[in-house]
Every structure is written in C-alpha cells, then in structure tokens.
Design a binder for these strands. Structure first.
Lengths: 197, 197
DNA sequence: CGAGAAAGTGGCAGCCACTGCCACGTGACC
DNA sequence: GGTCACGTGGCAGTGGCTGCCACTTTCTCG
C-alpha cells in the first residue's frame, strides 16, 4: 500500500471519528458539514469526496461491521452447511456489536432519532440482506434456491435486528444472546405463524 | 366532512398526481418542488405543508396501499386465527398491487433508481412491518408472543416484497401469486435454512 | 533522479430542498 | 354577519450537495 492510500485511509477514519464526536456532542442535525470539515482540518469539498452524504458519515461504522460479518460468512469453507455458516455470521455480529459497546449504541440512537439517517440505515440493511441472500443461494446451489435463500437471509437479519435493538434499548445491559437463542428456536420449531388460506 | 376538508383532500390528491406525472415525464431528480407547485397552481410553501419531503410525494401512493392492507388485517374478527388473517392481508396486497398496475410499477422503478426515495421506501416498509408485528402480537396474546410476532411479520413482509419485486421486474406480466405460494410452502414446510450451532 | 502523468485538495459559485416568520384571505361557527 | 380559526403564499435564509478549475502532492517511468 502506497503512501497516498495510507494517508487517505487515515483521513477517512479521522473524518468519521470527528463527525461522530460532533454528532454526539451537538446532535446530528445541529452539526454542519462545514463544521466537521473544519474540525478535521480539511476543506468542505474534500469531506464530500470521502463521504457523499452526512448520513454516510454517521453510518459508516455500522456498515463496516456489517460488511465484515458478510466476509465471515463468505470465508466459511464450502462444505460447511448453510445453517452452520449462518450461525457463525450471527455470532460474529453479536460479538462485534458487544465489543463496540458505547459507539454502536450512540450511532443507533442517533440514527433512530433522525429520519434521514434511519432511512439510510434501513436501506443499507436491506441491501446487505440482499447480498447475504445471493451468497446463501450460491451455497445452496440451483436457481430454485433463490427464494429459500431470500427467506433465510430475511430471517437471519430479523434475528440480528431484534437482538441488537433490545440490547441497545437496554443501554447495553441486557443479554443479547438470550433473545437470539429464543428467536432461533422459534424458527427451528414451528413457533412462527405463517399465512394459510 | 366540511368544505374546507374536502378541498384540502382534493388538493392533496392533485399534488401527488401532478408530481407523479412530472416525475415520470422528467425524472425524479430533474423535477423541482417549485415546478410541481407551479403545475398544481399552489405556492411552494403550501406544497411543503402537504408533503414534508419530495420523496413523500412519490411514495404516498404506495404508503396508502400499505396502510389499507394493515387496516384489512385489523378488520379481521378476533376469532380468525393469525395465519388466516395474514393470508387475507397478503391477498389484499397482491390484489391491489395488480389493480394499480402501471402506476405501482412506475413508482417502484423511480424509487429504486433514486437512493433517497428507495431509502425512505425501505424505511416505510420497516415501520409498517413493526406495526404489523404489534398487531400480530396483540392477537397472539401474551408478552412472550412479541418475538414470534416480529418474525411472522418479517416473513410476511418478505413474501410480499419478493412477489411484488419479481412482478415489477417482469413489467407486470409474470404471475405474482405463483411466487407467493411457493414462498409460503417453503415457510410452512422446513424449506428455509435456519442458523444452527 | 528528474520530468511528466496521475490523482487528491480546496476554493468559488450556484442549485435546490426545506424552514421560520408574517400578512392575507377564505371557510367555520355562533 | 361578524369574528375567529385556519389554510395559503411570499420572502428571506440555512445548509446539503455539485461542477468547475487551479494548485499541490504522490506515483511512475525513462
């Protein structure tokens, strides 16, 4: 990696961290892009080259964790069965979320309070779910697996979502894994009602 | 309903319709709020009182259909079992989507192409899913039902989403219900992989 | 190693979504 | 029919975001 790339990576990180501090201190809406740029000692125009929107600046942290989790899934050997690989994925997410602690909580709370940020978070979530679905489909093999894969990834995402949400709402004090286990049991057994004519 | 309310309702509809025509004719980004206001013969300030954001102007059509569907679910007698009520809900959505035809297709295609609109659509979808979940939980009774209800509503929404998406992508020519049936069969049987340690 | 190519930075002008404020006019209610 | 409430719309202003262009820094290749 050249000097150029290294510097840019550092700037990128610095911008996100600076923004995060200003957001938590003054609120998302009350913080202007100009302020963030000034605090990080770059021109506003440069800030926009790193992060296309203000929301991206807040959500990049969550996005990185999500992408890592997908990478963990992809890294599973091909002979690992899908349910096992999914478990590994969920496990990774819960672990990193717990480790990130306060920052995750702060980001989520800011995002949920801010319509535009929440919308972009949901959008990222949905896209991520789609990527996971194609990955599951590939492992399951065959065209006809696409539908099952979509449903599987939706379930997985919902399990993660509900676990993280209750955890964040408890301020990081509740046991995230208890919810996850109960949810997975419901899905494995027939505890979830399905539309029937 | 007084004259005042009637007029406002008409204006509200007129604004959405006018906006829709301009969006399809010139594209979402290329249409300004000022243009919409002018075409509908109201002041820009008034337009903003009816629709807080430009995206809302595009998505109000979808949102109305979604709200109606939720109303259909709520209208089911209390003794109707949840799976049956869910089926009624899905059925209503598929029916109205098919009836709305071109307009639904146009709205979806515009929204998917436009990051901000797609994000707000996803956000609305997620919120709607939450409302459905609390409604299901209420019918299932008991606090412990909340988790199962969340998973059930997520499944329901996914089934709807995937059906509508493939339908829209085929330009309204494919059979929406075939996908729906296959998805529900997968969910009823154990065709969907679930995370297992 | 040095010159030219390639790529990142930042300032300026400008568009447009969106808001607060206030004056005006139109339906509502007694 | 008067007054009161409320919807309308104009104006000024903020701030997110972009295109353009000149400047600087890093890379690359002879």
């Amino acid at each position: 990696m050249g000097l150029r790339e290294t510097k840019m990576e550092r700037t990128r990180q610095l911008l996100a961290d600076t923004a995060f501090e200003l957001f938590t201190a003054n609120g998302f809406a009350a913080t202007t892009m100009e302020q963030i740029a000034a605090a990080a000692e770059v021109g506003p125009r440069t800030l926009y080259r790193y992060y296309a929107t203000k929301e991206a600046l807040l959500l990049t942290f969550v996005e990185q964790r999500l992408d890592e989790a997908l990478e963990v899934f992809r890294a599973q050997p091909e002979d690992v069965p899908v349910p096992r690989a999914l478990h590994e994925l969920i496990d990774y997410v819960l672990r990193t979320v717990a480790e990130s602690g306060d920052r995750i909580i702060a980001v989520y709370e800011l995002a949920w309070r801010t319509p535009s940020a929440r919308a972009q978070l949901n959008d990222k979530t949905m896209r991520w779910r789609g990527e996971l679905a194609t990955e599951i489909a590939r492992r399951m093999g065959g065209r006809s697996a696409e539908l099952a894969a979509t449903l599987a990834s939706a379930n997985t995402m919902t399990v993660i979502e509900v676990s993280v949400r209750t955890w964040v709402e408890s301020g990081g004090r509740s046991n995230m894994r208890r919810i996850t286990h109960r949810a997975l049991e419901l899905l494995r057994g027939s505890g979830v009602p399905v539309a029937t004519p």
